[in-house]
Amino acid sequence: MGVAVLLKQVPDTTAKIGISGGRVDESSITKWSISPYDEYALENAIKLKESGHGDVVAITCGPARAAKCLTEAAAVGADRLIHILTESSLDSIQVQSLLSAAVKESGCDVVMCGKQAADTNSGSTGPGLASSLGFSCVGGVTGVSMEGDVASATRLGPSGLEEVEVGVPCVFTFDKGDTELRRPNVRGIMMAKKKPIDSLTPDDLGVDASNSKVSIKSHSSPPKKQPGQKFVGSESVPEVVNKLREEANVI
């Protein structure tokens, strides 16, 4: 029993990203938030708890500043908070090893997270974690309800929106859907402030967080847009369509 919800702290989607010395300058980022898809996971985790599926354990992996997302999760109803403190950048296997150790420790049989995080937009964590835990995995869901040990979820599958059934243990990754996020209230905020955070290091979890297999070589600004090109007449449409694919890479 219990729902583990994985929260990643990312620069707010409205934040400007500055780059200096070939690296994203984190000090220029004024606002950090819970990654938007993770918020849908959190909301659905709390709904599941309200329908009787045990406590919500919020887990984040990241530097000291990331603790804020746990407090925010507590303000809307997370019961237990686990912060895996990491400073360096990790590869997907390291992140998944840390998270799977924490999930095992929490005893939760349902894991919820966003379908991808708003910083790298990768989407590796949910399915990777499921595979390393041996849990089933349903991606891109917009809602989950449970009847005993069987969950039914709505997901956007290859052939459209569909309802699927899956047994626990299972990992769900969330898409937006029409989930409405709840607002915190003052009482929740005051209680969240008092809620202890279990801070764990990779060592505590028996995971080697050095020697990432993926290392960042550089960050750079996206190339400046080319000046606009103007074409006359509908005969130019085929050429423009080609440019949309070849130059702009948007279709």
């Binding site: 804020k68 303000a75 209230n185 003052v186 969240a192």
Partner: peptide
Amino acid sequence: TEEERMVRDM
């Protein structure tokens, strides 16, 4: 304080 900021953001 963090609490004040959270209330403000809410």
